[in-house]
Computed example of a mutant assay.
Amino acid sequence: MIRLTKIFTFETAHALWGYDGKCKNIHGHSYKLYVTVKGIPSNDVHNVKNGMVMDFGDLKSIIKRLIIDPLDHAIILNAHTEHKKLGEQLIKEGHKVIFTNYQPTCENMLMDFAEKIQSELPAAIILAKLTLYETETSYGEWIKEDQ
C-alpha cells in the first residue's frame, strides 16, 4: 500500500454565525489543503499508468473541480442562519458566495471535502487523509482510520 499526497492552495472568506470571537466577522484565509490517497501501484505493463497508484494530474483535476474552483476567492456562509440574507445581497452585487448546510469551520469543511472527494476517486483508490491549514499555525485533519 502506497500513500500519495498533493498540496493545494485557495483563498476563501467565511464568517461564523453566533460565534463569540473575532471569527464572527467576515474574514479570509489562505487555505492549504493536503490530500492523501492510498492504493496499490499498477503492475500492468500495458497500462499507461503502470507503476502508479494514481496520476497526480488526475488527482489535481478532481480536487480542482470539487474544491478549488468553487471555493477560491469566494465567501462561504451557513445557509441556515441570518448570513443567508447577507449572502443573497452579496450575490446581487456580483460576489461569489457559497452557501453550506453547516457552520463553515475548518472541521466541517474537512468532513464536506472528504465526502465529495471519496465519491469521485476511482474504486481502487482510498482517501486516506485530509489536512486543511486555515493559518500557518492552525489546521485540522480528517483521517480515514478515525471514521
Rank of each mutant, 00 (worst) to 15 (best):
M1E: 02
M1F: 03
I2Q: 06
I2Y: 03
R3M: 11
F8W: 04
F10A: 12
W17Q: 09
Y19Q: 11
G21D: 12
G21L: 14
G21F: 07
K22I: 08
C23R: 11
K24D: 07
I26A: 06
I26P: 04
I26H: 03
G28A: 13
H29N: 12
H29Y: 06
S30T: 15
Y31R: 02
Y31G: 08
Y34T: 02
Y34A: 06
V35M: 00
V35T: 01
T36F: 02
V37W: 00
K38Q: 08
I40G: 09
I40P: 06
P41A: 04
P41G: 04
N43H: 07
H46W: 07
H46L: 15
K49T: 10
K49V: 14
N50W: 07
N50V: 13
G51H: 00
G51I: 00
G51W: 02
M52D: 06
M52P: 07
M54E: 01
D55W: 08
D55P: 09
D55V: 09
F56E: 00
G57R: 05
D58Q: 14
D58L: 12
L59W: 01
S61C: 13
I62W: 00
I62T: 01
I63R: 01
R65G: 05
L66W: 03
D69F: 11
P70D: 09
P70N: 10
L71I: 10
D72S: 08
D72T: 10
D72W: 07
H73F: 13
A74W: 03
A74I: 00
A74S: 02
A74R: 02
I76K: 00
L77F: 04
N78R: 08
N78I: 12
H80W: 15
T81C: 10
E82R: 13
E82K: 11
K84E: 15
K85T: 15
L86V: 15
G87P: 01
G87D: 03
G87I: 03
E88R: 12
L90E: 09
I91W: 11
K92D: 09
E93V: 09
E93S: 15
H95I: 08
H95G: 07
I98G: 02
F99S: 12
F99N: 07
F99P: 06
T100A: 08
P104A: 03
P104F: 01
C106Y: 01
C106V: 08
C106T: 10
E107H: 09
N108G: 02
M109C: 08
M109L: 14
L110T: 00
M111T: 06
D112W: 00
D112S: 05
E120M: 10
L121T: 04
P122E: 07
A123C: 14
I126H: 09
L127K: 01
A128G: 12
K129A: 04
L130D: 06
Y133D: 11
E134C: 09
E136Q: 11
S138I: 15
Y139A: 14
I143C: 05
K144Y: 08
K144I: 05
E145Y: 06
Q147E: 12
